[in-house]
Design a protein around this nucleic acid. Structure first.
Lengths: 325, 325
DNA sequence: TTGTATGCGTTATCAC
DNA sequence: GTGATAACGCATACAA
């Protein structure tokens, strides 16, 4: 620490720069000036080695690059996380991890360079993440695919309940052949939404036989809609597990000559930007995505501060009516 | 290093785990097994402190969160970078930095936790980044806003040339009132594209008076198009500096009752996903965005490996004809 | 091929 | 309020 050329010892410099108590104002000022003049930047590796804290948080999105970033819900979550972390002393680093590098990421997360971890889009095949909390605090966005002991912290909407509201809305419009386009089968949120759809149909005495599996993407949503339409031309309602797939479904329906919502009513999920840019503005279940991001970051920061926080936090969802249903 | 319980010293463990030469195969195997059993993960801070290398690379996107991730070109660059880095021993961490945290980021980048830096969307107000290469190797995507000494490495298309091709195409269609919707004025690529537009018009003996400043976003593009249309109803051609703005412009034109391309021909830039999802599929200047990402990552890796690499790398661009012009 | 000793740059625990 | 000095966990030059 060359800044010791300021006439004091390294200890004092350290204390001055870190704003610790019991340092005279004059030396603080002096050290600051000298450090600035010399362009001194503390070595972060040495710092974390000595202090056993890195002051960094990782946001992990276990999806192959492009895929994840095409989802406005995820992007909104990221934005929320980013905003909350910015206000703290922590530094955020984002890791969009293809499956291939899963091991690399796990080693990184457990190697002491991050004090906490946020996980956004967890699939059941990423089960290593579920036990990461043995080594470092973790908060999930979306219920983890598996219950662990001790449990993982997470924040989520009532997916099944929200799906129920969506389907009830379609039922209220007189629809009787209501299909669903699901998310990937290995994600908890996807499964819960499908379950909600199924339950709502069941309590209306209707069969829940119109299911097509999607993957959150426009391509997947379009393919699913085409399959449904081919096999069940009598469909009059669609509940898609996110807006991106709903927008793609609308597009397929229009191209197939169906009117939306007259012939087929469509409800999406998220109330993301995709809902507004769809060819027919989407009726959708809103979800406070950005707020969720802030909340999960806040939760983690509080855990790091030693606070006690609830295992699960449920955020609100409600129906937003537009033109598609 | 508790793994020394494997019957050897920490040095041997270190050597075995790092695959150094001159270690017997048997001890290597033995140490590996013990380490795995104990769930040992090397402390990265200690490792970088001792070796003076972090084996990490930062991809910096100096844009406020959401904005950046709405741009398919940037996302593609990110994907390319990510793919290339995955294949290496380095770890990528992404930093989407609002202006507010600029200082925080700079300290991070110079604090020794990353061995190299990639910068994606640099504005002139981020001039600190231009001198970062005094402390750590840096590669830019897109020509930096300022020439420095020593110069910064960068990779880019011939923006002015490509813009010229776009405008020539419009001229070839008989258009004479050709406007441009630019990118932000504080970015080099934006300025170069505007210059190319201006030059093409000049050499056709036409005035270059129809300019509206955009910001790469759909909102900005739409606003720019509305302004242009209000002030110059005789417009018959538009060159937008990216596809997102071009798509938004098409939308505004259609809503204003103009036919595209019959009344107003539109050319975009990037050939990104936005070009295909526009209401009229866009004619656009293609740019190998993902490839650029791979290239810049590759360049940085080679610099880190001690290789000599060219300061600037130009990637190809060409006109892709679709329906909008 | 393996063990020993030293240092990386910072924080932290003592004394002063 | 400040100065010594010992960790922090690993890599590495040197010795064996």
């Amino acid at each position: 620490m060359v800044a010791a050329e300021a006439g004091v010892t390294r200890s004092t410099v350290s204390r001055a720069l870190n704003g610790e108590p019991d340092v005279s104002q004059t030396t603080i000022a002096h050290v600051r000036v000298v450090a600035a003049r010399m362009g001194y930047v503390p070595n972060r590796a040495a710092k974390s080695l000595a202090s056993a804290r890195s002051m960094a948080i990782a946001l992990v999105i276990p999806e192959p690059g492009v895929l994840a970033l095409a989802d406005p819900h995820l992007v909104a979550v990221m934005a929320g996380v980013s905003r909350r972390i910015e206000q703290s002393d922590y530094l955020l680093n984002l890791m969009v991890a293809g499956d291939s590098e899963n091991q690399k990421i796990m080693r990184y997360l457990t190697s002491g360079v991050v004090d906490g971890v946020l996980v956004a889009s967890q699939h059941s095949r990423h089960d290593a993440l579920l036990h990461l909390h043995d080594l470092v605090p973790v908060v999930f966005s979306g219920r983890p695919t598996e219950e662990t002991d001790p449990p993982n912290y997470f924040i989520d909407v009532d997916n099944a309940g929200a799906a129920g509201v969506a389907v009830s809305h379609l039922l209220g419009l007189g629809r009787r052949r209501i299909a669903t386009i699901t998310g990937p089968e290995d994600m908890a949120a996807a499964g819960d939404r499908t379950a909600g759809w199924r339950a709502a149909l069941a309590s209306a005495g209707l069969p829940a036989d119109l299911v097509a599996v999607g993957d959150w993407t426009a391509l997947g949503g379009a393919a699913a809609m085409r399959t449904l339409l081919d096999e069940h031309p009598d469909i009059d309602g669609v509940f898609a597990a996110n807006d991106v797939m709903a927008a793609a479904a609308v597009s397929v329906l229009l191209d197939a000559g169906r009117r939306v919502p007259e012939d087929v009513a469509v409800v999406g999920f998220d109330d993301s930007s995709a809902a507004l840019s769809a060819r027919v503005p989407l009726t959708t279940m809103s979800q406070p995505s950005e707020r969720s991001g802030e909340l999960m970051a806040d939760l983690l920061l509080r855990i790091l501060a030693g606070e006690q926080v609830p295992i699960s936090t449920v955020v609100e969802s409600h129906l937003v009516r537009r033109e598609s249903a």
